[in-house]
Amino acid sequence: MNDSIEDAVLGIMAGHMDLEREKMTPATPLQDLGVDSLKMVEIMFELEERFDINIPDPENVGQQEQQFRTAADVVNVVKGLIEDRKNTP
């Protein structure tokens, strides 16, 4: 189940970056892939829609830069939020 979430998240991200899905690995720094804040906003919108979650904003602009360094960070946040949703009555 978790792997399918990872697969879907990476697929969505690859789609936004015009990257082949195979080249989208969890460990690659997003900056190296050319993900800027604008692209990230679009990706977050699609992830929220797909998984029915709300990705919270960071506390301040300093933390914003740290929020998502790699695709794995994005996958982990999405998985956590899906878990939270399941546990919320």
């Binding site: 906003v41 904003d57 301040n60 602009v61 300093g62």
Partner: peptide
């Protein structure tokens, strides 16, 4: 909200801890 440039606490221009 969707643009993710909005402050939740207040507006703190030029401050390190500004949030939008």
């Amino acid at each position: 909200e969707s643009l993710r440039v909005m402050a939740k606490d207040t507006c703190r221009p030029f401050s390190a801890s500004r949030s939008g």
